[in-house]
């Protein structure tokens, strides 16, 4: 029995099945990445684990207890940061700490909050409001807040998708560093196979929806700390990357139904836009007669 366990979990919204027969077992201290297309049901999956949604059938258990509602044993980092705009960095994190550790002395709470602000390198910005922070910094606050409640498991729902490439790789480095320091159990949801390979112990593809389900799990056998440049000559990396991407694209391809349709493309050259010519109704310069082509439509 894994630390986090999903058994035959299905979820539909109305008549449309989103997730079907999901089985997942995550060990304590393991970093698992779930990779899927947008719209495949990744966020639904995270909501089921965080307790924001209930499955139609099947069970989700954490540490042998069935999950029926949200709770502070699970820390969630959302794609849109979800910070309170009228509170500064420090207050946003303190709010969570107050809720989860109401019996602590103010000094202890204070020290605890500062520790996590420092962990994500935001000490300089501790008194700033979210509106004064860049996207990357906001997401750091969100990560610090999730870790500060000392959850049993950390759920990362596409935490870096809204950031530019450079900020994304900086934050990937930080997540990797923080994880190596305290080895929390992590479930990361992402649409980027490379992010999964760089961060996780194991990658599990979510097939394309509707009625998405989890594919086979791929172990990431690349030693930590991982180096973005050096992994390029690691044959394990190359093979894993190819397998994961192939699996994902294949699962999407299976969804298309190919119909063939006959199309006509007139072989005409474009004209210079010229209102004067328009009035004379000049004929197009044709290169040859109409060519026909059959196209596979998906």
């Amino acid at each position: 029995m894994g630390f986090l366990e999903l058994a035959n979990v299905s979820k539909s919204f109305g008549d449309s099945p989103v997730l079907q027969n999901l089985n997942l077992s995550v060990e304590k201290g393991e970093f698992v990445a779930i990779v899927g297309f947008s719209g495949a049901g990744k966020t639904t999956l995270i909501n089921l684990i965080s307790g924001l949604l209930k499955p139609d059938s099947g069970t989700v258990t954490l540490n042998d207890l069935e999950i029926v509602s949200p709770g502070p044993d699970r820390g969630v980092v959302f794609q849109n940061y979800s910070l309170l705009p009228w509170l500064n960095v420090h207050e946003n994190i303190l709010l969570a700490v107050d809720q989860v550790f109401p019996n602590w002395t103010p000094v202890k709470k204070e020290r605890h909050v500062e520790k996590y602000i420092a962990m994500v390198n935001l000490t300089e910005a501790r008194n700033k409001k979210p509106s004064e922070l860049s996207g990357g910094m906001r997401q750091r606050v969100s990560v610090a807040r999730a870790l500060a409640i000392d959850p049993q498991i950390l759920l990362l729902d596409e935490p870096l998708s809204a950031l530019d490439a450079l900020t994304r790789s900086t934050l990937q480095n930080e997540i990797s560093r923080i994880w190596q320091e305290d080895r929390k159990t992590v479930v990361l949801i992402t649409n980027d196979p490379d992010e999964g390979i760089y961060l996780a112990d194991r990658i599990i593809p979510l097939t394309a929806g509707p009625a998405a389900t989890l594919g086979p799990s791929f172990k990431v056998q690349i030693r930590r700390p991982r180096d973005r440049k050096a992994i390029n000559h690691d044959p394990n990396f190359r093979q894993l990357r190819r397998e994961v991407i192939e699996f994902m694209l294949e699962s999407q391809r299976g969804r298309h139904t190919a119909i063939t349709k006959k199309l006509v493309l007139p072989d005409i050259e474009p004209e210079e836009p010229n209102p004067a010519l328009l009035m004379f109704g000049t004929r197009p310069r044709r290169r040859n007669e109409v060519k026909e082509e059959t196209v596979e439509v998906s």
Partner: peptide, 15 residues
């Protein structure tokens, strides 16, 4: 393609 026929323009966009 203002010199082409209406039908030809439609075919181009559709293609």
């Amino acid at each position: 393609f203002y010199t082409a026929s209406r039908e030809e323009r439609r075919q181009i966009a559709e293609y």
